[in-house]
Design a binder for these strands. Structure first.
Lengths: 189, 189
DNA sequence: CGAGCGCTTGATTGAGTTCAAAAATCGTGG
DNA sequence: CCACGATTTTTGAACTCAATCAAGCGCTCG
């Protein structure tokens, strides 16, 4: 929801208390591929801004199967939105797919946003609206597209991610098995 | 995204220019069941706040099949979020399922939000975050739940809507056919 | 009271899953 | 830099859930 690059750089004319407090509340971490930043069940889950690398968020269903919710490459924000907005325990796991540099935005950091100046908040509103739009698209694709159509959409929308990520993860994002994806790809050549 | 009840009522201490301009830009309409308020393809799509009645939003796929994206009962807001945030033509149809009283929030009204005072905007941000959380939940359910589990979730989450809406619409929301839903229901009794 | 819409039921079909195993690719230590 | 083990991708067969097709029932409202 909130890209902190924005705050840290472009809004430097507003060097007020709040901005500084927020800056101070952020944690920078460097993590290795495979690091789990957040687990399902965690209270007051964080947001993670990807400065470098690639993260994924996912659920694990009762059969132990992983379902990828989102990927987050450079300059993307990733979080468990439902957990954040309803103050409920996290559902999503968040994990590094590549070695990554991450900015952690804690619950506490988010609360400080309440006092940010109007233009910054309005900006955040616009950004969140886009994120919401992407989710709408995702729901509609899951409902009205075949697996093949979803795959085509995916490579059109995220051409860079297709290269960086093993197929089984893409299959998981699309809501199909790796075997089914393999079959799709064969047919399409 | 933006509940105007909020604006019109609770924020009446802010009787400034902007609030009044926004109030003036809203249109109130009364529509009969079956009225299509918005069609796919429309540029600069509106938001619709339901004062009374029930709306649905949906896409129509290339086979002519309808897929319900959301229901909106009293006090809910419904819109094509993707169209709004990317200024692209609408994908969603929006239609009255019952005779309804609707407040139309045009693109123009939305733009006036840019000048609203910070607390109001911050409120909108919170509200949008919840909407986003609901969408996240929807995606995860579509991916990790069986049709039966999705149906159970639906009646738990929207007990009132189950009563007011024909089964074929619920089936469409769940992403299954009316026949499949009928079979589910039979097994579950 | 009849026509049409919506719900149910059954038979058939098909997309995608599951299970199993082979082929290809990756990554790490020697 | 190569080799070997581990992981990933592919392939195939059997199966499953839900879609499609088709028909009958029941309610509502005109």
């Amino acid at each position: 929801m909130i890209s902190l690059t924005n705050l840290l750089n472009s809004s430097n004319k507003l060097d007020d208390d709040v901005t500084n407090k927020i800056k101070a509340s952020l944690k920078q971490v460097v993590v290795k591929k495979g690091t789990v930043l957040q687990r399902s069940g965690k209270m007051s889950s964080n947001s993670y801004f990807v400065k470098k690398g690639l993260l994924k968020s996912y659920v694990i269903d009762e059969k132990g199967k992983e379902h990828i919710f989102t990927f987050a490459p450079e300059n993307w924000l990733i979080s468990d939105i439902e957990s954040q907005s309803y103050n409920s325990p996290a559902v999503l796991f968040i994990e590094a797919i590549e070695d990554s540099e991450i900015e952690i935005i804690s619950k506490h950091s988010l609360e400080l946003f309440k006092e940010l100046p109007q233009p910054v908040i309005y900006n955040e509103l616009q950004r969140l609206l886009k994120r919401c739009g992407t989710l709408q698209r995702r729901v509609l694709m899951l409902m009205s597209f075949s697996a093949k159509e979803r795959y085509n959409e995916f490579i059109k929308t995220y051409p860079d991610i297709v290269q960086r990520v093993p197929q089984r993860l893409i299959a998981s994002y699309l809501g199909i098995t790796p075997q089914a994806l393999s079959t799709l790809r064969k047919k399409y050549k």
